Amino acid sequence: MKIGFIISMYDEIETVQKTIVTLKQYGCPIIIIQSDPKDPSKIIDENQVDFYQKLSDLAGSKEEYIKERTSSKEATTPVKAVTRNYQLGFSMTKSFHVDYWVAILGDVLITSMTGIEEIIQKMNSKKKSLAITRAVGQTFMDNDDKPTRIQTHNTTDFMPQFFIAQNDPIQNGLFSKFTITNRFATEQCLGDEVIRYCTENNTDFHTFTFTISDYAYPQFISGLKYNPDRISMPRYVDGFVNMMRRLKTNHSK
């Protein structure tokens, strides 16, 4: 089984370089799409990976991005950058012979393949093509910047930090036609692109996908570490709180 990686990054060079070292030990093809941090010390050496492309910083600069985040409820730059970077990354997969593609953001650290391989085994046993994490119990902003998009057990939104896709659907056009359906939630844009693909190929989202976790940033995946800034609670407390979120969501239906 051959596994490739697509990494969308900005200035997280230390984390990405550590991930590259790990992936080379496993012989994984690596595609990196980097939004230009405009700092030479933060730019990946393209000779380290199998494909590298630097794209423009859609915020203009990190200072402008920080200003955007602090002057409004939510920023729209991450949605545009992540969907753009992932679409280009997936479009570059045709020249690689792999069975699965793992997509991660630059602040996700890979230290081994153990957890990822376990997820792929579960995908195979359940005949699923896409493995995702969701945020059941949380509420996202809608396209009008209002907190109305409640994440239930039927949600099709999923987290952009980490997901796994079989190669065949990728070559058949999955993640090739992103539309910004929600300026404030990359999660909805990802889910809507999968819905688009499923509709065109006579299947449905929940048949097509395997849910790794119904809460964001699961800490049980061996060899995968999320940005500590995203994780606000210890692993077992985190699991309990998210279980309560899911129970509340069920009772509110």
Rank of each mutant, 00 (worst) to 15 (best):
D192K: 13
D157S: 07
E118F: 00
I195T: 13
S112F: 11
G115Q: 03
E193Y: 01
V194D: 03
T207Y: 05
P147K: 04
M113A: 12
K128D: 09
F184I: 04
M113I: 06
N167Q: 15
F210Q: 08
I195Q: 14
T111V: 02
N182F: 02
N182S: 04
T152L: 05
K128G: 12
M113D: 05
I195P: 08
T152E: 01
D192C: 08
F163T: 07
T199A: 15
V108C: 08
I164M: 11
F178L: 07
F205Q: 12
A131W: 02
I110N: 07
E187Y: 06
A135S: 15
Q121M: 10
Q188A: 13
T111M: 04
L190D: 03
T209A: 08
T199E: 15
G115D: 08
D107A: 05
Y197A: 12
F162H: 03
G173S: 13
I110W: 01
T211L: 09
A165M: 11
I132A: 09
K127D: 13
D204A: 03
T181A: 15
T156R: 11
T155M: 03
M123H: 02
Q188T: 12
C189W: 00
T155E: 06
I170C: 14
D204E: 05
F163A: 07
L109P: 06
V136L: 01
G137I: 11
M159L: 15
T211K: 11
E200Y: 09
N202S: 11
F184S: 02
T209M: 11
G191L: 11
F162I: 06
D168V: 14
H206N: 13
F163L: 10
D157T: 04
